[in-house]
Simulated assay, not measured.
Amino acid sequence: MDMAALIAVIGVAFFFTYTNGFHDSANAIATSVSTRALTPRAALAMAAVMNLAGAFLGSGVASTVSKGLIETPHGSKGMTILFGALVGAIVWNLITWYFGLPSSSSHALFGGLVGAALAGGTGVFWHGVVEKIILPMVISPIVGLVVGYLVMLAILWIFKRANPHRAKRGFRVAQTASAAAMALAHGLQDAQKTMGVVVMALVISGHQHGNGIPIWVKVSCAAMLSLGTYAGGWRIMRTLGRKIIELDPPQGFAAESTSAAIMYITSYVYKAPISTTHVITAAIMGVGATKRVRAVRWGVAKNIVLGWFITMPAAGLVAALVYWITDLAVG
């Protein structure tokens, strides 16, 4: 196996992780910044550190990505498939970042893998795609919406006799913890997805047997995710923090706590790679609906949800085109 091809694929994987970091950093900190619980730079620094820590907390999601979605053919064909998948995901990340649309980097990667695999005539484990990707993609935002709504109702009931100004100050402090938990969960989920792809590249190239994750892969993916997070994702942060609903500290705390809890459960119990973007956006909608249904800007929400559904096929199409172009170039 050409070492240059392996280095190229791993390099592109690291760049994807970097774009994932600045694309999805808003997921962890947009609510805290919009409620002024944290300054943008402090929030990004905290999120970067917690992303780095979260990457070392498990490997179940990485295992799902590396062996549960597509076959891993050996040789140049397998490397071309991974290259196409990663480029497709990166292109979609950059497009949605430019337009400030909080789409899922995770589903861009999954769509890229499936699109490149189909273009290369490689088998796709459709049962795994449906069970581990499609169902969580549909169910997790619904759970986020409902649980976010219920958590916010509970907060309103518990603190109904509290001094509003004092309560908001308290929740602004509490948001530091909930934002940190969210960033930790983001590291747990998203760094592992790239780890799974790098492991696939090592197996395809014959440099590794089995699906264990070498320590250098963990450190590298975690570091690139953290660097990307610290670079910031201001366009998407504005969409999540302001355009869906004007959040106050109790609402921000409820949305972040709900999202973090869902992500920990799916990571450890189901080992399912879910979208941080989907969960936090749905939780924000649920939390906002407790004020009044019209408080949520449903037109913005509709555009975001439409973006969710086109992410996988759009990234898959780009990945397929990249596969064919690369295959012709190296063939």
Rank of each mutant, 00 (worst) to 15 (best):
L153F: 00
T176E: 09
E131R: 04
Y268P: 07
A272I: 08
F110K: 06
V130W: 09
L247E: 07
A301G: 15
C221F: 01
T266F: 15
V219G: 02
T35G: 04
A162V: 01
R172W: 00
A47I: 12
L135T: 14
M285V: 15
V300P: 13
V219E: 08
H165W: 01
S275R: 05
I155W: 04
A48C: 11
L6F: 05
S104N: 01
V9E: 08
V87W: 04
V305Q: 12
G78H: 04
F22V: 04
G120I: 05
G11Q: 08
P73T: 08
I134F: 12
L57W: 09
R36W: 00
L6Y: 05
F159S: 09
A181D: 05
L94F: 13
A261L: 14
A117V: 08
E246M: 11
P141R: 13
G212H: 08
A37L: 11
G170H: 03
V173S: 11
L328Q: 05
H209G: 08
A261K: 02
F83K: 03
F56E: 08
S104D: 01
D2H: 03
I262T: 04
Q175G: 07
K243L: 14
W234N: 03
R166I: 11
M224Y: 10
K77W: 01
L227S: 02
R172F: 00
V146G: 00
G120S: 00
E256S: 06
F22G: 01
I244E: 04
G100Q: 00
A283E: 02
A223T: 15
R161C: 00
K193M: 06
A37S: 15
T326W: 12
A4M: 13
A85T: 03
V305T: 14
S76W: 02
A315K: 11
G123D: 13
R294C: 07
V114M: 04
S275F: 01
W126I: 11
G54N: 07
K132C: 03
A231S: 14
S140V: 11
W308M: 10
T277F: 01
M50W: 15
W298C: 06
L150P: 07
A43C: 03
A117K: 06
G21H: 03
A48M: 13
T258Q: 09
V318M: 10
P273V: 09
L135N: 03
D248S: 11
A167V: 06
Y323T: 11
F99E: 01
